[in-house]
Amino acid sequence: MKRTVPLMIVMVGGILMMVQYFIPHQYSQAVFDSYVSWAPIIAAFALILGVGSLTRVHAHKIRRKAENWQYSWAVLIPLYAMPVLAHIWPVSLSGGMDEPSIFHFLFMHIQVPIQATMFSMLAFYIASAAFRAFRAKSALATVLLLAAVIVMLGQVPIGDLIAKWFPQIGLWILRYPNLAAKRAIMLGVGFGILATNLKIIFGVERNWLGGAGK
């Protein structure tokens, strides 16, 4: 019950879904339709697990007054306030029905700017990483450096000023050698995914069972 049944569910479910792809019959289509309607519902419940886990960690920190425990409130309050503000108490900012709600405000003016700024901050870190990666110590590092510089300059107006054909070289690198490397990587990843799929379906790979209750 603890290990065999879940392994059987994986095997039967995996083989069934694989086979239905190759048999375009109304029964196989019905199986697939059930999967399409069931899978998001089950996955949605997994969110409860994540929220419960996060709550447990932060509640534990607050209870024990661990280091920086005050910030845990900054996680827990909006975590529960957002669904309440969205569904149970959708307060608008000025009381009017047409005005944006607090839920909308929190998302648009806290979440969006913070996330955009976090991603933009990577520009600084990527610059420092470039400084280390781009020291042309070997022929291969020089190739990496040249390709990056040509692609970067080819995308901005200065590239056009250097020479009319300069952006074209950047485009050529993106279209041909870059695509060749990406395609090889994609093929490798594809074979890896297929092998892993088969290993999980046939129970060779069992790490996903975890240690829950052995």
Binding site: A127, A141, A147, M152, Q155, V156, G170, P177, N178
Partner: peptide
């Protein structure tokens, strides 16, 4: 070829 690809991808990401 891989180095050319990584360089191009890096440049694209920086942009």
């Amino acid at each position: 070829i891989i180095m050319l690809g990584f360089g191009a991808t890096f440049g694209f990401t920086v942009m």
